[in-house]
């Protein structure tokens, strides 16, 4: 792995972002922090798509898929925040480990 920037450097940045997102999703209680982790993961996936579109052989199709990923992220964020607001109104908490009404 050389210092000259090629495909690998972008992939490594994306892998680091992905791992940080995974860490946030697993370790955080706050549902909004979990959402931020998911956004990091989606960004990491997008970097991969666009890096392969640039360096690989799939031309612009990777960028089109990245557009769809961004659309899905927007829809997902809207629905998730609506759910979080509803949970907050009902249970007065946004911590994902305290929302266990079904268990008790």
């Amino acid at each position: 792995m050389s210092l000259h920037v090629g495909l690998e450097q972008f992939l490594v940045v994306s892998a680091i972002l992905f791992s940080l997102g995974i860490y946030a999703v697993i370790s955080r209680k706050n549902a909004i922090m979990v959402l931020m982790g998911i956004e990091l993961i989606l960004n990491a996936a997008n970097i991969n798509f666009i890096a392969f579109a640039r360096f690989g052989i799939m031309n612009l199709s990777g960028q089109v898929v990245a557009v769809f990923v961004i659309i899905l992220a927007a829809a997902e964020a809207a629905v998730l925040l609506a759910i979080v607001l509803n949970i907050f109104q009902q249970l007065n908490t946004v911590n994902v480990d305290e929302v266990d009404k079904l268990k008790n």
Binding site: V13, I16, L17, L20, G21, Y23, A24, G37
Partner: peptide
């Protein structure tokens, strides 16, 4: 990017 992501997490 990475420093900011670390800051987020």
């Amino acid at each position: 990017t990475i420093v900011s992501a670390v800051g987020v997490v």
